[in-house]
Design a protein around this nucleic acid. Structure first.
Lengths: 345, 345
DNA sequence: GTGAAAGCGCTAACAC
DNA sequence: GTGTTAGCGCTTTCAC
């Protein structure tokens, strides 16, 4: 049990700018000027004001400033799944730039839900935040128009919104899919399956397109029965892989197009009594600490997650008033490991 | 390249309460009453106002409300490491309660840094947020006093602040340490190592205490050379485990006291050419999707992460004006898997 | 049940 | 350089 006190003595109240002004013997305007570094204030006064403010533990009241200035120095990062390490790594990149730009970052978790996403964007508008980095919940259904209408700078990351005129930082997902598949072909695999994601996400469509590119360029027939669509979550990856393995002509390799589904896929393969890479080779998407913990260690297509966040934040910081949308495309990197070593058959 | 338009036509401006009032032929006060469900407004007017507000796409301006009401309906969740899945799972629990309570949640990442933590708490104060859930960066150095002084309800999670009078939701870490160690003893291990965390965190101290409890209660001597302190990160876990394995009398089992360090520990064990559990048994802390992906699958002490967040949010929602601090302690659960199966020696 | 008016804390425009 | 004043958009008395 802690002590009974929970609240300060009644009558205690918060220091306002006027209190500081009075204590320092100046006007509120001067205090404001000193604390914001605007206008010319004599060194002597400046010093005195700063000291008094510190003594009184003065914290400017954010909402009052925002009301006056019509914006808040806050960026929102709207991510689709807070439990997906891909997104959290990206957030670090945004944060590091934001600090230097004197912006704060708040995180919003849309949970892949258009309703929650819209609710968060309303908040962005209601609070007059000064920028948004967003991984949209749906490439074609997410509605960013309210932000554009109101001048709020937006940078899309990871997923491409259909809406035009929006700055973006994306990974070349098509290339990633191509790299993964070509690597499997080179490893000697002949029936390569693909566990792809929801149609509403550009990442899923593009990784799948890359898979098809690789097959086509090497004159492999593309067999639709080898492609399974899931939800980018562990459970979906498990089920899709299981179904694929139980099909009449199962694959000898599988390209799993995101990190969480890879976990499910490995489980499904083991449950089927198969061994990687002897019975089936595997390439995942996204590198994570645990991909080298499995046996065999997993071959993956890695994304520059931190860099995505960093560049997105830089676009936000430098958003011009007008001009064409800016698009940054970063390269994925294939990291060959044990799950695709060549196994003669 | 997208189209050139980036900003709305000049003259476009945001709808304010006065615009709605005018369009509906009522006063601003009435619009406010309708939209906030306060005061008695006739059904007819109510309907008309609502309709007009919707047509004009009116969004109340948050800072103006906050200035008037002196609080914002926002809870801050201050976590120590956004890349640690333990914390992100917890956030989900907070969010789910917050929505029902009509509160928004913003996430702040202190990065285990007292300076960043203090900066975020200043923001909480400056913005007059209405509650904080915090995993402190340091049990004894984190300063929550500014929040208490200003009446901001605080709930500590995961880590216990030394400061008294603060509501908390913690896991019984001592019990968790005891369970892990007792399990290893029962599995036949005789020299059990412990990779613990930074002294500044109560979780590290308590898991270590549990480890010692288990040894003591079974009359095992506790050998300080078997205890290594690291930083709760992967790299630290690797180095500490490596050092332990290279010591003159290496352990036949190791209790690794958090999720990230467990990854490092497994790598160190493999690098030493040892096999789990034949050469060395292992118990980790925190269950994660990948703990069943390793071979052998890892025995862990699981924490009810989502539940920690949920209960913390409930405490926040029901924070009384005065009374003793409330403390919730949740039980950890040992999940026995293959990394500790009995191996006769 | 509704409107008029005051004021939340701050900053920017204007005086001096 | 510094002070005075007005007003940001909203809610909440207070009248009626």
């Amino acid at each position: 049990m802690g002590p009974v006190r929970r609240r300060p003595a009644p009558g205690t109240s918060v220091t306002k700018i006027g209190d500081v002004a009075e204590a320092a013997g100046v006007s509120a305007a001067t205090v404001s000027r000193v604390l914001n570094g605007r206008g010319n204030v004599s060194a002597e006064l400046s010093e005195r004001v700063r000291q008094v403010a510190a003594e009184l533990d003065y914290q400017p009241f954010g909402p009052a400033r925002a009301l006056r200035q019509q914006v808040t120095p806050v960026w929102a990062v709207v991510i689709a799944d807070i439990e997906n390490p891909f997104f959290t790594a990206m957030v670090r990149g945004v944060e590091d730039v934001a600090v230097g730009e004197e912006h704060r970052v708040v995180l919003c978790n849309s949970d892949e839900d258009l309703g929650k996403e819209a609710a968060y964007l309303n908040i962005v508008i209601a609070e007059r935040m000064s920028g948004v980095v967003i991984a949209v919940a749906s490439t074609d259904e997410s509605d960013l128009e309210p932000l554009l209408e109101r001048n709020v700078p937006v940078v899309a990351v990871d997923r491409r919104p259909v809406q035009e005129g929006i700055d973006s930082v994306l990974v070349d997902n098509r290339l990633g899919g191509e790299q993964a598949t070509a690597h499997l072909i080179d490893a000697g695999c002949r029936r390569i399956g693909c566990i792809t994601g929801p149609t509403r996400l550009s990442t899923a469509a593009e990784r799948l397109a890359g898979y098809r590119d690789a097959l086509a360029s090497r004159m492999y027939a593309s067999d639709t029965r080898l492609v399974r669509r899931a939800d980018f979550k562990e459970r979906g990856g498990f089920q899709a892989t299981k179904a694929l393995l139980e099909s009449p002509e199962p694959p000898d390799a599988v390209f799993v197009t995101n990190n969480l589904m890879t976990i499910g896929a490995v489980h499904a393969i083991r449950e089927a009594g198969l061994e990687i890479p002897r019975d089936i080779a595997l390439v995942g998407f996204d590198d994570e600490p645990w991909t080298t913990l499995t046996r065999p260690q997993l071959t993956v297509v890695a994304q520059p997650t931190y860099e995505i966040g960093r560049q997105a934040a830089q676009l936000l910081a430098s958003a011009p008033v007008e001009g064409p949308a800016r698009h940054v495309v970063l390269p994925p990197t294939l990291i060959p490991r044990e799950s695709t070593v060549f196994v003669p058959r």
